[in-house]
Amino acid sequence: MAEVRVTVDGVNYADDVEPRTLLVQYLRERLGKTGTLVGCDTSNCGACTVHLNGQSVKSCSVLAVQADGGEVTTIEGLARDGKLHPMQEAFNECHGLQCGYCTPGMIMAAIDLLGDNPDPDEQEVREGIEGNLCRCTGYQNIVRAVQSAAQKMRPGAAAEQAPAPVAGGGN
């Protein structure tokens, strides 16, 4: 067993885990953070994407012990006081999801992308989310959603945008 101390969606945790425990397993099975999903075993699909210390990572390819001392944000930690993150709103408004299975990872990847590049063109969005597979949407409305969120999140764009992007994308 190894000890892991980690902050997830604003709550501090200290747990003993088997070293082989994947971060995503820890989140889902130990912390009940079932909003983060697993879609593959080779880090291709990106469904498990969360932010670790402000950067998007595939939580199936990080050991829980590697996150020791770190800060994790999952899809469940985005909305603040019942107010959705602009990216979440944009996915709804632009019909950027169907079955929803890729959605948590896609949203987390997209937020990170905007942290790096606040005003991406279509091709930059497509390349920015290339680590996340979706089988339902053909991506077009996801791309639209990310660009729409970028508009909303632009400084001074809208008065009502309460939550700042959670991740800075981390440079």
Partner: peptide, 19 residues
């Protein structure tokens, strides 16, 4: 109409079988 079902899917308030 934007979709009703999205509210749970975009927040992780989902119930897939493995969960």
């Amino acid at each position: 109409r934007t979709r009703k079902e999205d509210a749970r899917l975009i927040t992780g308030r989902t119930r897939y079988t493995d969960s």
